[in-house]
Structure formats: structure tokens, C-alpha cells
Amino acid sequence: MIQTQTAILHADHIHHTFTAANGQPIPALEDVSLALAPGTFTALIGPSGCGKSTLLRILAGLVKPTSGQVQFGGLALDRPQRRISLIFQKDNLMPWRTVYENIELPLQLAGVAKTEKEQRVAHLLSITDLLGFENHYPAELSGGMAQRVAIARGLINEPDVLLMDEPFGALDALTREQMGQELLRIWATTQATVLMVTHSISEAVFLADRVLVMSPRPGHIIREVPIPFTRPRGIELLTDTTFTQLAAQIRAAIH
């Protein structure tokens, strides 16, 4: 376990309970503690409805947990921060804004000066391979491109922490593999700490430094699997024996 003192984002004994429409309390998260060390890539995996997305929303400061505390940079997190960026499963682009304007949005909200905005958007357009599409509207993009725009928007503030909720969930399998590799390439150019929720075991093992496995609802972390592969990682890793073993280990932990 990573020492909580060095962690940039740290969740301490989080419990969360929903109230269903009929008034029944539904426990979603049960005693979840985790710590993210700066610059690391963590994947969070678990069965559907185990509270992964809720945990991510709590870590982003969007949802207040029923009990427990989240600390960001040593301070209690009580509302969303610009230093924490959340990327959703759906691209959540504004259909009335062009690619450029969508990527620019967080800078606009933060009141960044025009010339700096232009520089940073141009930089992200190039690392997400979207140059030439800045004046297109989201409706004109493929799913993979729209998700790249969402990732560019998530990175534009140069966040310390990047939380991703199944960012490739809506993509087809081939685009997904490609996007995973691109994400690693983009991530290498930033110093962001990443926590990514995913359904795909091989995606988790391929991308992350460690994989956290959650139990079915009420969710808690049942397993922590460190991933030893060095970076940069190539697609050939997918056929590596250690890779297959790690994937099998995680698969066994989930079921």
C-alpha cells in the first residue's frame, strides 16, 4: 500500500448509501480506502453496479460520501477542484460548440487569457491527433474522435489528478485498443496521476501500474494487483505470458 503521506488523492474509510425511489437505503460503497501516489496510473475494476462510478464522483468532489473523508493535496475535498479532472464514459461534449470551443471550455471557466488558451488548445489538438478538426462540431465526429476531444478537454487544465470513468466504454473494441495506446502516449507527456475505472481486464493490466479490484455491491476493494511491466508498453505485451497470468489472476478475483 502506498503511504498516505505521499499520496496526492487519498480516500479514507468511505461509506456511501443511496436512497432508492421507494425510500429503501441501498449501500453502494463500504469502507473504501485508497491512496493515489503522484504520477501513477491506477485502474479500478469490478462488476457492473459495484459503485465504481460513485466512488469516482466522490473522489472528484461531486458527491459527498455518507461517511469518510477524501483528501486532496492534504486538504479535505468538499467540492470539485480544477486540479482534478473527470472524464466520463460518454464524451459529454456540447453539441453547439466546435471541437476547439469544447476543448477550450475549462480554460474559459477558469478565466485564462486568450493567447494562453490558444497555445494550450493547439498543443492538445496536436497530441490528441485532432489537428484539422478544430472547427468541426461533435455531430461530425466518430465516437473515437469525440472521446479524444473529451480527453483533450480533460487534460487542458493540466490537472494533477485525472479520474476516468470507463472513458472507452462507448467505443468499439478495435478503436478501444488504439485509444488505450494513445492514452499512454498522451499520459507520458503529462505528470498527471490517473485513476481509471474500466470493465476490461486486459485494458486495466495493459495501462495501469496497479489494478484495484472491487467486490459487487456494496463495493469495497478486495484485491490490489501491482503491474510490473516497464513503460513504454507496446501492443505485443498483450501476448506476454506474465500479462496473461496477471489477467487471469484479476479475472479470478472478480468472479
Binding site: 472528484a60 470539485p80 477542484q81 479532472s85 473527470l86 466520463f88 471550455l105 475549462p106 471557466l109
Partner: peptide, 8 residues
């Protein structure tokens, strides 16, 4: 939610 997450 996206706007809120961006501290709007």
C-alpha cells in the same frame, strides 16, 4: 455534471 466537475 461535467460543468460542476469543472468547478463552474
Amino acid at each position: 455534471e461535467m460543468m460542476r466537475a469543472n468547478a463552474a
